[in-house]
Computed example of a mutant assay.
Amino acid sequence: MPTILRINGFRFFFYSNEHLPIHIHVEKDNKTAKFNLEEIELVKSRGFNASELKEMRKLVSENIAIFKNKWDEYFNN
């Protein structure tokens, strides 16, 4: 499960056996979330409050190129 980014206590990662659409998982403490990356969209969340989800969406938006590049490197090579 490759970790792509750690920032503000969040860990952004994907699993080694992922599927389309392109997405990123996020965890912090015992909380988890998943965002699609083609159009940034929260798919699911467990335990995060609204302000944390807003911060994560901002971080996904700011780092979307990194996430997509890492996805392509890992799954298309």
Results as ranks from 00 to 15, higher is better:
Asn69Lys: 15
Lys34Leu: 12
Lys68Cys: 08
Ser51Gly: 02
Ala65Pro: 01
Val43Gly: 10
Phe75Arg: 09
His19Gly: 04
Lys68Trp: 00
Gly47Pro: 10
Ser51Leu: 08
Ile24His: 04
Glu55Asp: 11
Gly9His: 06
Asn76Asp: 14
Phe35Gly: 12
Phe48Gly: 05
Phe13Leu: 09
Leu20Glu: 13
His23Met: 02
Lys54Arg: 09
Asn36His: 09
Ile7Gly: 01
Ile40Leu: 03
Val60Asn: 01
Glu18Asn: 08
Leu37Cys: 06
Val60Arg: 03
Glu39Leu: 10
Ile66Lys: 15
Ile66Pro: 04
Asn77Val: 11
Asn76Val: 04
Lys34Met: 13
Glu39Arg: 05
Leu20Gly: 09
Glu27Asp: 14
Arg46Trp: 05
Met1Tyr: 05
Ile7Asn: 05
Ile64Phe: 01
Asn17Glu: 13
Ala65Asn: 14
Tyr15Thr: 14
Leu53Phe: 08
Met56Ile: 11
Val60Met: 03
Val43His: 12
Lys34Arg: 11
Ala33Thr: 08
Ser45Val: 05
Arg11Ala: 14
Leu37Lys: 00
Val60Asp: 01
Asn77Gly: 12
Ala50Gly: 03
Lys68Ile: 12
Trp71Val: 01
Asn63Gln: 03
Asn76Ile: 07
Ala65Lys: 11
Arg57Ser: 13
Glu62Ile: 10
Arg11Asp: 14
Ile4Cys: 07
Asn36Ser: 09
Leu20Thr: 01
Glu27Trp: 03
Asn36Tyr: 09
Arg46Tyr: 06
Phe35Cys: 08
Ala65Thr: 15
Glu18Ala: 10
Leu59Met: 12
Trp71Glu: 04
Glu27Phe: 13
Glu38Val: 07
Ile24Arg: 01
Thr3Phe: 02
Ser61Leu: 08
Asn8Gln: 10
Asn30Arg: 14
Leu42Ile: 05
Tyr15Phe: 14
Leu59Gly: 03
Arg6Trp: 05
Ser45Tyr: 00
Ser51His: 04
Leu59Gln: 11
Glu73Leu: 12
Glu38Leu: 10
His19Leu: 09
Arg6Asp: 09
Ser51Val: 04
Lys31Ile: 06
Met56Cys: 01
Glu18His: 11
Thr32Ala: 07
Phe67Thr: 05
Glu55Trp: 06
Glu73Pro: 05
Tyr74His: 15
Asn63Tyr: 00
Asn77Ala: 14
Lys31Cys: 12
Pro2Lys: 03
Arg46Glu: 13
Asn77Lys: 15
Tyr15Met: 11
Asn49Ala: 00
Lys28Asp: 12
Pro2Gly: 06
Glu62Arg: 15
Met56Asp: 03
Lys31Met: 11
Thr32Pro: 04
Tyr74Phe: 15
Ile7Ser: 06
Phe67Tyr: 04
Lys70Gln: 15
Ile7Tyr: 08
Ile4Gly: 00
Ile64Arg: 14
Glu18Met: 02
Lys28Leu: 15
Asn17Gly: 07
Ser51Asn: 04
